[in-house]
Design a protein around this nucleic acid. Structure first.
Lengths: 190, 190, 190, 190
DNA sequence: GATGAATGAGTGTTCATTCAT
DNA sequence: CATGAATGAACACTCATTCAT
């Protein structure tokens, strides 16, 4: 028997992300994705159970990839503000350098497929960051408020800043980013 | 016969929003929308040029409706912080009470259709708010930074807090909202 | 609006029967049937809910048609043997003249679709014949045995005689048919 | 290694019959049959030229098996009526005990595949029975009519009685079967 | 001998849209 | 104005079969 070609799976992930960016979730059909990936539509069903499986797998793949990047130079021994600043910059950098992937996440989450993923399983990737926030609260550095609020003010604005659709192609300089982090920190610091 | 027309158009807007919420953008076909609205599929083409026109019109309709609500009890003569707090609470209230419409906006914006709307035309609804921010900057109450940053930290977190998909059904009490606004204000205030 | 074209429904029935005869139940696809009927595949879904509905409707249509033919010159006042002989000849004649339809019935019945039809509803067409058999039993003309046995020996052989697949194209003369009925009658008569 | 082969071929016959019974001719795909038999789809092409060959071979296999059973306790020296009664009971018994196989035969015969089998080759299995009928005719015990008529009245009703689809699950007692044979004999006896 | 990878052709069905009324 | 009839194009998916191993 022939051996399974993992390049094809990779190509399918790539094609899916690219197409969803170009023509949107709704219009990204199986056959278009196949053509973009340079395989036959039926080949997709060798690697994935069905279209849903392809889309969800692509999502999970990106999420895992992203979580790795966020925690890349994560160093627990630094002062709390510095740790968070590190993560914050990692996020902005990753998103800026992977706009296609980020856009896929957004479109995926804002679709009925979003409900299909095991959120809790994915959230455990964020635990190291959440733990740092907890420590900050204990040390009276960070406001002791609902954790969702902390996340919302720390990380949500990044989504906007990184999204060229929302910020009409505004390019952010080093200075702006520094300023932005200061604002995020002002929001959550005690 | 004018009245009948407008009823049908209204019904089509409603049906579109409802369906997109229930089954998503991709699965919301013209005929399903027509059936939900209680009209024939071809009737849609009496009111709209095509499917795209229907979706975009629905979007614009909601945007206009929303902007009205945001500026409902807008009073320029109040202190700046109070004005902004008023708008901020209006937004959260509107979104909480109109989750279906809000969800439609999200799905629409995160799709290639988003690019079809005249953003500038819509943004002029926000001018009164932006003007208040300008005054705050002049009066050294608000940080003099890129305006996108101000918007991002003022309003982006609301999107997260109001979105039950992202905050798994967390219900926000009066206190939480008060806290959240404090954080937003901390972020932008000088 | 355009008015529904009943000719097309008729053409679809005809095409279905013809194709099932030529290439069999298993190979008769929706698109082939559409092409044979000279309509678009999607037009089928204007007249029928789905493929199953088309096949079942075709079956029921033939059954009704057939029952009418069987009872065509049914005359209750004749002697019992003559009534049955009349029906018997009608059946053989109808089947011989409508081999395509008969073949469709056989293929349909010998398929999982067969289970989908409301058998009892169809059997009521046969009630007049069954009633005659009952009278024959009361009058001690016909054997008083399980009714299924009577049907099996009266009518089942017809299926074989009329089926050219089973009788390799044997053509039946007047005499043969007369003989065959005698045999059927010998089987059930007391 | 011969043994392994034949196990797989046997398993494929079994799987084919089972699947055709459960989901019908049309839906019984090569890959489903392979899965049911516990082999790879491509393995089928080791044993059979193609799908058609598999289906036809299964048919012939059953036919051979069945003919053996029919002539199991065939004893030429008995009186003619007893010989025929013996065969008749063997048929009914075999069919009742092998409904799956019988159902396969029916579905197969009522399909264009039916035309592909060499009928004459199969019919030679029936020669011993036909010879008995000839002797019965010579001895003026059996009606001297077209041989097809004799077969039709002798054996066709069995198909009906044994087919639970046609006789809605009617269970036949010893007495009923005795009666049924009497009717068959009445039909053909002089 | 036996297999899983791979595919072009085909499946049943729904799509957005037009047309005649 | 409003509609149901009608369709070509597309949909997600499965098919029988071949091929490299």
């Amino acid at each position: 028997m022939r051996t399974k070609d993992e390049h094809k799976k990779e190509a399918l992930f790539k094609a899916t992300v690219k197409l969803v960016n170009e023509i949107g979730f709704a219009s990204s059909s199986v056959s278009k994705i196949a053509k973009e990936a340079g395989v036959s539509p039926s080949t997709i069903y060798v690697f994935f159970k069905n279209k849903e499986d392809l889309l969800v797998s692509t999502y999970v793949e990106i999420k895992r990839n992203m979580a790795d990047a966020f925690l890349d130079d994560f160093d627990e021994r630094l002062p709390i503000r510095d740790i968070i600043k590190g993560v914050w910059f990692s996020m902005l950098k990753y998103i800026s350098n992977n706009l296609e992937k980020y856009d896929y996440l957004e479109q995926f989450a804002n679709s009925p497929f979003g409900a299909l993923v095991d959120k809790d399983a994915l959230e455990k990737y964020c635990n190291p960051i959440l733990n740092v926030l907890e420590r900050g609260i204990e040390q009276k550095i960070i406001k002791n408020v609902n954790r969702e609020l902390l996340s919302a003010f720390m990380f949500q604005p990044i989504a906007r800043l990184a999204n060229p659709r929302l910020c009409h192609g505004q390019a952010w300089g080093e200075e702006d980013i520094e300023t932005a982090f200061t604002m995020a920190w002002d929001a959550i610091k005690l």
